[in-house]
C-alpha cells in the first residue's frame, strides 16, 4: 500500500472543466490525499512545516497542474522553492524524500502531436519537464513519466471521461503498490503504460 499525495496547483480551477473532472471523485479512492495549493495558500505564503509533514507521510507525490507557458503555475514553483529545502530534501543530509515516487500530471491545450521538433511547440513535453525531472533526481526521488491530458479545449465528453477514468485507474494502481517501476520507465507518458495494461496498443 502506498499513500498518494496530489500537489494540485491551479489558479483558475473554477473555470477548468478538465481538471474539475479529473479530480472529481478522487476522495473515494483509498490512500489519496489532495493538497489544493491555491486554496490552501491564497497569499502564496506556504506553510513549509505542514508541507514537509505531508511529504513524509506519503510515498507517491504528484505535481498536478495545467501547463502554463510551458511550465507550472507560479504556486508550484513557489512550493518547490520553499519546501524542498537544502539539508532536508537535497544536499548533505537531505534524504527525507529519498526513494519516494514523483511525477507530473498535467493538462495542456495543445495536441500531443504539436509537442515535437519542427511542430508548433518545437519541443516535447518531456523536454519541457526537464527541470522537474532533475529536481526529482536532486532529491533522490524516483521520477516517473508524466500523465498528460492533451487538447483540453477539443476533448469530447467521451474522451474526457476516458481520461478521467485513466487518471483514477492510475491513482488506484499507485496506491495499491502492485506495480514494478522499471517497465514503466520505458513509456513516454503514464497514459501509455495504463493503456497497454488495459490490453490496448502502445503508441
Amino acid at each position: 500500500m502506498n499513500k498518494v499525495l496530489i500537489l494540485f496547483a491551479h489558479p483558475r480551477f473554477e473555470k477548468s472543466k478538465t481538471n474539475q473532472a479529473l479530480l472529481c471523485g478522487i476522495d473515494q479512492i483509498d490512500g489519496v490525499t489532495l493538497n489544493d495549493l491555491y486554496e490552501q495558500y491564497p497569499d502564496f505564503n506556504i506553510d513549509v512545516e505542514r508541507e514537509k509533514e505531508l511529504l513524509l507521510t506519503h510515498e507517491v507525490i504528484i505535481w498536478h497542474y495545467p501547463l502554463y507557458m510551458y511550465s507550472a503555475p507560479a504556486m508550484l514553483k513557489q512550493w518547490m522553492d520553499w519546501v524542498l529545502e537544502y539539508g532536508w530534501a537535497h544536499g548533505s543530509g537531505g534524504n527525507a524524500l529519498k526513494d519516494k515516487i514523483v511525477f507530473n500530471a498535467l493538462t495542456a491545450g495543445g495536441a500531443r502531436e504539436s509537442y515535437a521538433a519542427g511542430q508548433h511547440n518545437r519541443f516535447s513535453i518531456r523536454e519541457f519537464l526537464i527541470p522537474f525531472e532533475q529536481t526529482g533526481a536532486l532529491c533522490k526521488m524516483i521520477y516517473l513519466p508524466p500523465f498528460v491530458v492533451h487538447g483540453t479545449h477539443m476533448l469530447t465528453h467521451q474522451q474526457l471521461a476516458q481520461q478521467v477514468a485513466l487518471y483514477h485507474e492510475l491513482l488506484r494502481r499507485l496506491a495499491s503498490g502492485a506495480f514494478s517501476i522499471e517497465p514503466i520507465r520505458q513509456y513516454d507518458y503514464l497514459n501509455d503504460w495504463l493503456l497497454t495494461g488495459q490490453g490496448q496498443a502502445k503508441r
Binding site: V48, E49, D81, W82, V83, L84, E85, Y86, G87, W88, G91
Partner: peptide, 11 residues
C-alpha cells in the same frame, strides 16, 4: 526560523 529556502549561508 523555517525560512531556509533560498538561504545560501547554510551552504
Amino acid at each position: 526560523v523555517h525560512d531556509d529556502a533560498w538561504d545560501s549561508e547554510k551552504r
